[in-house]
Amino acid sequence: MTTPDAAVARKGPAARTATGRGSGLWRASMARSSVELKSFFRNKQSLFFTLLLPVVLLLVLGSIFSGTVPGTHTDFKQTFVAGIIACGIMSVSFNGLAINIAIERDTGMIRRLASSPMPKTAYFVGKIVRVVVTGILEAVILLAVGVSLFHLPLPATTEHWVTFLWVLLLGAMACSLLAVAFSSVIPNARSAAAIVTLPFLVLQFISGVFFPYSQLPAWMQTIAAFFPLKWMTQGLRSVFLPADFAVVEPAGTWELGRTAAVLGAWCVASLLLTLLSFRWRGANVK
């Protein structure tokens, strides 16, 4: 640790410019990432609502549903677990991030960061670290619960693993970017959890998480097909269900190419929305 005098001595025009922008960005990103993870894991609310709620859903609903998918020997729970993993990823990325940003905007954090020389990129690096770490944790927990309690088979081939990873990664990216944009319609920190839960809940019901997608009314399927969660669950069904289950899907195939296209389009659209809506300053930034 330096003494106050040393701090004064090393200060000056040279010291100020000696720290290049690159190293400043690295240091700021490390500081942001560390704070993101600390506050996530210390906050009981964020731990429960974003990380543990999908696990609870899996345990409770997984214990209710039983039987095999009609005409097959495949446990119905497997389709359900695939959907819950997709929800878990949406939970940590979309719900978690939108609520988190709304709180940071309402409690003065964003304002103070904007008032500091922090490179703006560092803020988003921190958010990415937050979503990646919590997303991996969420996927591992749900996978572990699914495999140990509900006979979920692990992805069978390397190809399945690859699909598993890119669907989660692209899904998390689309949901995170959407969360940043969505946070701007949340008026204050208190209402954040409620406002975020509504679209999440609706999407869960119409995207084939709790009910088989193929049995939903056609208009509901159409609406769901516009949003990322439907494609994430479908992508994960392709990983965990036998290949011949594809015939139940609306298109008769897993449509992995279309899944990538829709999720990619959501990334691009959400990024644009984020660029247009995210504010470092203004009346709503307390």
């Binding site: 200060k11 010291a15 100020r16 704070v35 500091s116």
Partner: peptide, 14 residues
Amino acid sequence: HFAAFYPAPLPVEQ
């Protein structure tokens, strides 16, 4: 955390 953003911050203790 905030000190990390500045090129020559005060020591945190100070």
